[in-house]
Nucleic acid binder design. Structure first.
Lengths: 207, 207
DNA sequence: TAGATTGTTAATCGATTAACAATC
DNA sequence: TAGATTGTTAATCGATTAACAATC
């Protein structure tokens, strides 16, 4: 299964959720193309890597498809996530409204700054980094989020992996060196801005 | 030029900056492979879409390469950016430490919430959305950042485009419908988490 | 049945990798 | 000159698109 196909599943699920809210019961791949911008053929091909989801001549049941894609992504049951870093980014992540829909739950928030430890951010009390291993073990989290400065990222990542984390979202602008069985997804906002900068600068009209 | 090649330029520039700080004057494509994980052949091929950057038998001058890539990305001169949305995410973006290195500058921050308008976030005073067109025109910004809720995103995007914005970073979980000459880059943190969830769930060991 | 739409196969397209001539 | 390393060409690989048989 191609990684781009997996990456598009999130797009589909977001769209299906919206259709559900609007009360739409059924969609065709053509409809999905209109809603997501992904071509009908691409949509059907993407799904085909995972099984059969529709009925020929009819289309797809919105709710069923949403549920089955959720199961594929393993977001059909609540999943514990560790968040390291309680700075501005960490705080914004805690306030993010989408956790619930995707069935993720912040199991614990860590920081090493004594000024932050013990403070409450929304419904989370910031814990001392020292307790990372202990808490990771007790909640059995497999996914962690790195919202720490670049110079701290590798050290924290190593500790998370040692504590049983096998998937990491890395917001720090640094390349992590981790065992190959650990999956890492980089989120680099400023990189996106730089790419955009090139694209708008080299646009046909207006130079 | 393939889009993936462009996307990797940010990785290279980040690496080159680090090498510069360490005082390294020269790198080979092999060195870059070690530092970034992108293969030497890929690195050379990526650069080849834009010109010649090194010396055969020698390698690349770190500073020169960094500067030339910065010019390719159009981040060699200060660039004004409009930020719409002064919530948690907007605040975290304002606090982001990487703006300066990439020569981006937040020209103005907007929100429509009367409780936020007039408040200071770091060195920015939040402006009324009503003034968006006026300010956009006066600073001549071409890039905007959408840090507003999904239900507001399309409307704000339309206004930004009407005000001369041709590149958008969209943090809202919604597909924007915009004229084709407008470049949009989606940043979807929770999508990354969902992808990661699938990857760790379907890993060889531990299931 | 006729019309619609899927799932899948084959064709196309594009990106990556490998190899090597150019050259420092 | 010999060794190193680029820039580029050709070969491979993988993803997307198009077409269509299956089937609701």
């Amino acid at each position: 299964m191609p990684l781009p196909a997996l990456e598009r599943l999130s797009t589909y699920i977001r769209c299906l959720r919206q259709l559900e809210e609007e009360g739409t019961a059924s969609v065709s791949s053509q409809d999905m193309e209109r809603h997501t911008g992904v071509t009908a053929a691409q949509f059907r091909k993407d799904l085909s890597y995972f099984g059969e989801f529709g009925k020929r001549g009819i289309g797809y049941r919105v709710t069923e498809l949403r549920e089955r894609i959720a199961r594929l992504l393993n977001i059909d049951e609540e999943q514990q996530v560790l968040l390291v870093g309680a700075g501005h980014l960490g705080s914004a992540l805690i306030a993010y409204p989408g956790w619930h829909f995707y069935r993720f739950r912040i199991a614990a928030v860590f920081d090493k700054d004594p000024d932050k430890i013990g403070a409450a951010i929304r419904n989370h009390v910031v814990l001392d980094m020292e307790r990372l291993e202990e808490i990771a073990a007790s909640v059995g989290a497999r996914i962690g989020i790195l919202a720490v400065p670049a110079w701290d990222a590798q050290g924290v990542a190593d500790r998370l992996v040692a504590a049983g984390i096998v998937g990491l979202i890395n917001f720090a602008p640094t390349k992590l060196r981790l065992p190959p069985q650990v999956s890492v997804r980089e989120v680099c906002f400023i990189c996106e801005l730089a790419i955009l900068s090139h694209l708008v600068h080299h646009q046909p009209e207006k130079g």
